[in-house]
């Protein structure tokens, strides 16, 4: 197999489409989590926490808690959907179903199958981000132009966490091991990165660690209507760097599992 063989659009599309077709066949079940989760969170936090929290200070200004929360929830949706698809679903296709092996007996190259899988994991993240944004728009928290303008960010975050999922799929040897990075990295990131509360409330060392994690950068950037952080260019660069590193490492971890 020629890992350096040029990618064709057709090859990437064909690999992506296989997963899209499976998703499409169970679309009703699949569309439930990205819509119901944000709705439940908004109801719970909206009715439960807002009377307690009221306004919070973010980026030097007072904002309603739910307005702060909505972009954070989008970031969380992107994280879980793209990472979950990359880690669990790709691992199953790689190790149990051997779908990758089967496709690689055809003219498709490893790079095309990898890119198709990555784009599919990212697609799941984009669906989650847009669905969460849609619920927030319906709730009156965000605007439609905001969602449109945020699409590139949603895609970047989805690619990053999809690649992190694929890296996990390439590294673990049993499906249970997928839980290790989930509980050691993903859950702490989801709770501490300023998705549900401003990181400034954390002790300084913890705030600094949390701020270095990619979800923090994504949540900060998605809150652009509340004012971009002063270091937003760095945040964007940081996200891009994480994405590139995760993609390269994922590629390198999966390739040796298919070609000896």
């Amino acid at each position: 197999m020629q890992p350096q063989a040029p990618l064709t659009l057709w090859g990437v599309y064909a690999a992506w489409r296989r997963n899209a077709r499976v998703y499409q066949s169970t679309w009703l079940v699949n569309s439930l989590p990205p819509l119901s989760e944000p709705l439940i969170y908004l109801v719970a936090f909206g009715f439960g926490l807002t009377p307690l929290v009221g306004q919070i200070t973010y980026n030097g200004q007072e904002v309603a808690y739910l307005r702060f929360l909505a972009p954070g929830m989008m970031a969380v949706g992107i994280l879980f959907q793209s990472y979950g698809e990359g880690a669990y679903a790709s691992y199953i296709r790689l190790s149990y179903q051997r779908t990758w092996h089967a496709i690689l007996t055809t003219p498709l190259t490893f790079s095309e199958v990898f890119a198709g899988e990555l784009l599919w994991a990212a697609t799941k993240g984009v669906i989650a981000g847009v669905a969460t944004g849609g619920v927030a728009i319906a709730w009156g928290l965000l605007s439609f132009p905001y969602l449109l303008l945020s699409l590139p960010l949603i895609l970047l975050g989805s690619l990053l966490f999809g690649a992190a999922g694929l890296l996990t799929a390439g590294l673990v040897r049993t499906i249970d091991q997928v839980n290790v990075p989930l509980f050691l990295a993903v859950v702490p990131m989801f709770t501490l990165c300023g998705t549900y509360f401003p990181r400034t409330t954390l002790p300084t060392p913890l705030n600094e660690i949390a701020s270095a994690l990619p979800l923090a950068a994504l949540a900060d950037l998605l809150r652009w209507p509340l004012g971009l952080p002063s270091h937003w260019v760095w945040s964007l660069g940081w996200l891009l760097l994480w994405a590139v590193v995760c993609i390269v490492l994922a590629w390198r971890s999966i390739y040796p599992r298919l070609f000896r």
């Binding site: 296989r18 077709r21 499976v22 066949s25 179903q97 051997r98 779908t99 092996h101 089967a102 007996t105």
Partner: peptide
């Protein structure tokens, strides 16, 4: 190519 294992796609 017919490989040793049946890597048919169970999703279809």
């Amino acid at each position: 190519i017919v490989t040793q294992d049946d890597n048919l796609d169970p999703d279809f």
